[in-house]
């Protein structure tokens, strides 16, 4: 039913149900549908800018020269020495560190596991207070210098954006509502994991902050988000740390950066119980199993299945399932009893 030639006639809600029951091919079809559509519309552009079949996960850093345009000038590529621009070097080094972490830990061959080149654009726009993934590459602003600075300089920011790419190719979580909050959650999870590895911290030394290095002293807070204490990182931080505070309004694509605080807190609590490396393995395998429309309850179902499997294979300790279950229960996400 779900072979390559038949799945396109199966309605998405049936694919979703089959994906929930463990059909890998249906999950893949569901995830691929929008990506294929998008790819068709951009394939000509891609042909113009990238040699096909030669991708080796190489890094390319472009200087946007403070224009709101990507790929203005290629200033450093894989294997080339440092330039005089510290932002360029930082984007090169940190994206290499993230690539190395996923390769060495999970055997992932770049963003899409097929050696997709890692393209970073720095110095985007004027006073641009943001960093984003556009489906193909990463783009970083310099910040306005008043509240924010150099988004390419934060290892957690770079990891966060690159993981949006990984999520796109693994689960392709839809970017709105709960699935969007999960998309943000996975980027924060691996943002903090990579940051702790980069700094050589363990869970007791870690600050669990996201974006602390891109805010200035004038910024009314210490970071953009806190995984340890969602809602406390700054004066605008509205992240809940429990389902009781779930945001159901329309802003921010139905709260993708808001409700991610709930699973973020569950991740932090899990790490305290079973450590960062076991959690990273569990979360990565969960991301590989989730599907485009997955919500928080689906995440719990899948993460428990994944953890049980890893526990049976003795890849995680025998307290892992209980620890994960307790952590999610602490933030108000519990197994549904029918």
């Amino acid at each position: 039913m779900c072979d390559k030639h038949h799945c396109h006639i199966v309605p998405p809600h049936i694919l979703e149900e089959l994906a929930k029951r463990g059909s890998v091919s249906c999950k893949k079809t569901l995830n691929d549908t929008r990506r294929i559509l998008h790819k068709r519309t951009t394939v000509l552009n891609n042909l113009l800018v990238r040699e096909q079949g030669t991708a080796k996960g190489n890094r390319f850093i472009y200087d946007c020269q403070n224009q709101a345009k990507q790929r203005v000038e290629l200033v450093r590529k894989e294997g080339e020495p440092n330039t005089k621009d510290t932002t360029v070097n930082s984007a090169y080094d940190t994206s290499g560190f993230v690539r190395g972490y996923f390769k060495n830990t999970f055997g992932l061959n770049s963003i899409n596991d097929k050696g997709l080149d890692i393209i970073s654009n720095v110095h985007y726009g004027t006073d641009y207070n943001n960093a984003f993934w556009d489906g193909d590459e990463m783009t970083y602003g310099d910040g306005d210098g008043i509240e924010f600075k150099n988004f390419a300089g934060g290892i957690d920011v770079v990891a966060h954006e690159l993981v949006h790419g990984i999520t796109q190719f693994l689960a392709n979580l839809e970017y709105q509502g709960q699935s969007g909050a999960l998309n943000e959650h996975f980027s924060d999870v691996f943002g903090t994991v990579v940051k702790q590895k980069y700094l050589g911290h363990d869970v007791s030394q870690a600050d669990w902050l996201i974006g602390d290095t891109v805010v200035t002293e004038k910024f009314p807070g210490i970071a953009i988000r806190s995984m340890k204490a969602p809602g406390t990182a700054n004066d605008f931080d509205k992240q809940p740390d429990h389902m009781d505070g779930f945001y159901s309004g329309p802003a921010n694509q139905q709260g993708v950066h808001i409700n991610s605080g709930i699973p973020n807190k569950a991740f932090y609590l899990s790490c305290l119980e079973i450590g960062l490396d076991q959690c990273a393995l569990i979360w990565f395998n969960t991301l590989k199993t989730l599907w485009r429309t997955a919500e928080f309850d689906d995440m719990l179902d899948v993460i428990l299945q994944v953890t049980k499997k890893l526990q049976n294979e003795e890849k995680v300790g025998n307290t892992a399932v209980k620890a994960i279950e307790n952590s999610f229960s602490s933030v108000g996400i519990s197994k549904t009893i029918v």
Binding site: A131, F132, G135, E161, Y175
Partner: peptide, 8 residues
């Protein structure tokens, strides 16, 4: 643009 993440 459907694939943007963290875009304004």
């Amino acid at each position: 643009s459907n694939d943007i993440r963290d875009g304004f």
